[in-house]
Design a binder for these strands. Sequence first.
DNA 1: CAGTGGTCTAGACCACTCA
DNA 2: GAGTGGTCTAGACCACTGT
Lengths: 254, 254
Amino acid sequence: MKSAELPSRLLAEQLRQAISTGTLQPGQQLPTERELAAAHGMARNTARVAIRLLAEQGLVQAEHGRGVFVRTAPRVLRLGPYRYSRTLREQTGLSPYHAEVRKQGRIPTAACTSIEEVTPPGYVAERLALDARERTIRRENWYYADGEPIQHGVTFLPVSIGAGSALAESTDLGEGDLYARFADAGYAISFTREEVSARMPDQLETEGLAIPLGVPVLQVIHTGFDPDHRPFEVTRFVMRADSAGLDYSMAVDD
Amino acid sequence: MKSAELPSRLLAEQLRQAISTGTLQPGQQLPTERELAAAHGMARNTARVAIRLLAEQGLVQAEHGRGVFVRTAPRVLRLGPYRYSRTLREQTGLSPYHAEVRKQGRIPTAACTSIEEVTPPGYVAERLALDARERTIRRENWYYADGEPIQHGVTFLPVSIGAGSALAESTDLGEGDLYARFADAGYAISFTREEVSARMPDQLETEGLAIPLGVPVLQVIHTGFDPDHRPFEVTRFVMRADSAGLDYSMAVDD
DNA sequence: CAGTGGTCTAGACCACTCA
DNA sequence: GAGTGGTCTAGACCACTGT
C-alpha cells in the first residue's frame, strides 16, 4: 500500500482540503477524534495520527480538554533594522519594539529579567573579538504583545563598556532604550550585522514562549558596531515565527 | 501524574541528555524502538512516541528500514544581499548562489524548471504596484548543493519588462545570472527589500525539498528596485532552514 | 532473509475544560 | 459529571534496507 493511500494520510488529506477550501474556517473546531474515528471506521489512534500530521505542519492546534482547532492566520510583527534608528527613538520616546507592536494595534510590554556578569559563550566572544578570559555583562529580556510572549533577547557587552552605568546595573533603562544608553556611553550604533536562521524551539523556548507544535522560531544573532566599525554588543533574539518576522531594506553594493 | 513524569517524556529526556552530553554522537544510531521498549519495560509504541518527540525538535531523524540517527550539525549556507552585487557577478562569472555554495566547498547546481506567463498572485501584484489585469512572467528555479535540494525560488516580472528577451524565453541565462539580464533590459538592481519569515513546509515543499520532520523553512519575499526606486521584480525564496540562513549587514539610519 | 521503522487495532485510564 | 485530548498497552502486519 502506498503511503498516500494509508487511512491516516487519507484522513489528513481530507481535513487539509477542508481547511484550504474554507469548509473548515480558521478558529473553527474539528470533529472530535472519536467522531472522526467512528465516521471513517478506524481506531481512535488512527484519527489521532492524522490530526498530529496537521498539527506538525502548523495547520491545526489541539487544546487539551477543549478540542482541535484550525489555526488562525497569524498577525506578524515585521521587525526591521530601523529599530535601531536614533530618529525613531527620539521622536516617539518609545523603544523600537514598543513602537512596532503599537503600529499593529497591540499592547506591548517588555521586561529585563536578569543582569549578570558572565564569561561569554563562544559565538559572542568571536563576534566581539574578545580575549579568552574577558568577561561580559549579560542582559536577558522578554517581549510581549497583548500579554503573549513573542520574543526573547539576550544581550552581551564587554564589562569595560558597561561598568558603572545603567547598562550594567539597571533593568529600567529610562528614556529611549538600550541603544540610547550605549550612545551615552560613547557607542552610537552605526552599523549592524544580522545573521538569521530558523529552527524548532528547544525545551526551554517551548515552555518560555508557550510555543505550540508546528511553530518554528526565528533566531537572529545581531552585532552592533560603532562608527569606527568596532563591534560593541551582540544580541541573540529568538522569536516565535507565527508572531514575528523580519524586514530588511537596503541598497545593493556595486 | 505530571506530564514530565510520563514514561515517554522520561525516555525522551534521557535520550536528549545522551545527545547533548555527547554520549550519543551526531550521526550515531539510537537503540532500536524494540530495544528501548524492552530496556524500559514499556510498549514499543511508547518508545516510539519518545523518539517522535525528539524528531519534531529536529534532534534525531528516523530512516525507514535503517534506524534512528542523531542529526548532524548542519552546514549552513549564509545568503546575503551581496548576492546581488555586480562586482561579484563580474569577477567570478558565477551566479551568486553558485559562488556562495562553492565557498562552502560544495558543488552547486541550479535549474530553471518552468517559464510561464501568468496572472500574478496578490503578494506580487501588490509589491510591483501592478494594475489588476496586468500579467507577469513567472520563472521557477530549483537550487542544489551536492545534489541535495536546498532552495526553491519563483520570480515574477512584468511582461512589459521581459517580453522578447532571455528573461521570458530562456531557462539558460548565460554569462552572469538573472540580474545581469535585468541590467541588459535597463533594470539594474540598486535597492532591495527582503521580508523574512519562517514556517513549517507544506506538502509540496516537504516532497520537493525532501524535508525531514522537525525542519522548518525560511521564506524570503524579495523585491528588486531600479535606481529610480521602482520595483521591477519579486522573488519568493523558500529554503531548508537546516541548510541555509541569511546574513544582512547594513548601516543604521539616523 | 532478518531487522528496522511505519501503521493500525481495540481497548483502558488519566488530565483538563466547562457547564 | 460529561466530553475533550493525552498516554499507554500488547499485539499484528506492512514497507524498506541491508546482507
